[in-house]
Design a protein around this nucleic acid. Structure first.
Lengths: 143, 143
DNA sequence: CTGGATGCAAAAAGTTTGCACGCGC
DNA sequence: GCGCGTGCAAACTTTTTGCATCCAG
């Protein structure tokens, strides 16, 4: 995990360099923090966390850097059932199971479902690029 | 479909009455229009359409009525990959296949996937209430 | 008549943009 | 030094709310 984080951070630095951009302090700190966590965070949460490390940081820089991380293919922006965007590290693919009561999010993967999806898209004449599967229900503690 | 629409409209009227609310002109027109269409519409689109029938209508009334329709279980609010909310009639369950190029949305259903989802949720200790499955890809015309 | 519903405008919430200054390269 | 990046504030977009008035029951 620490290793993976380092690899991903390097991959972000490469992305920056390859695109003729600059590797600033702020980008470095946002990426370092975000690539090291698991879960789903809003821009506001990321801002709050990174501000503890880099006090002068601005909101826009968070948005701008998160967009960069998305373009670099390291992060994905998601909209669960609210309007607000949540960012998530993109590594191995997985789907989400969300508790409607307490908001707890579990991740899972299921190859059988994946291949049925592929087939379903094909039947509609689509070539499948990606998908989104979210299960909503009550978790162990809430039901 | 015309029959179904009438049933659903009556069901909305019942919901209103049972909750001690009032069956206003505006609610009636919004519900009548929306329950009669297929597809996914933003508040703005609904507003524009209903305004042709009921010119004086306000934006807030659209939002308020759509919320009522959701509470009545007749409509669902969805967020595809943008922040903006889209409303959809909730009748038979189906999932969505979305073209990332032209935005075309196809609906489908697949019982095999449904039961695998049930099993996957169970394995995580969740009792499944609902789910959301969206396939993204290129449609026949765009690929 | 009376309380909920409406339309408007203002406020919120979330996100983007313009701009002058600052700092990587 | 040049030009991209930053922070700030203002603008924008989408949705919600406060309030005076209106109208359904």
């Amino acid at each position: 995990m620490a290793i993976d984080e380092t690899v991903r951070l390097d991959s972000f630095r490469d992305f920056i360099r390859e695109h003729g951009l600059k590797n600033t302090h702020q980008r470095e700190e946002i990426a370092r923090w975000f690539l090291g966590v698991n879960g789903h965070f809003s821009a506001e949460q990321i801002f709050a966390q990174v501000r503890e490390i880099e006090p002068g940081i601005g909101f826009s820089t968070v948005y701008r850097t998160m967009r960069l991380l998305c373009e670099a293919g390291l992060v994905q922006e998601r909209h669960f059932d609210k309007g607000e965007a949540l960012y998530e590290n993109l590594s191995a693919h997985h789907d989400h199971c969300i508790c409607t009561e307490c908001g707890r999010i579990e991740e899972f993967e299921n190859d059988q479902i994946e291949s049925l999806q592929e087939a379903a898209a094909e039947r509609l004449g689509f070539s499948l690029v990606s998908h989104r599967l979210e299960l909503y229900g009550l978790c162990r503690n809430c039901r």
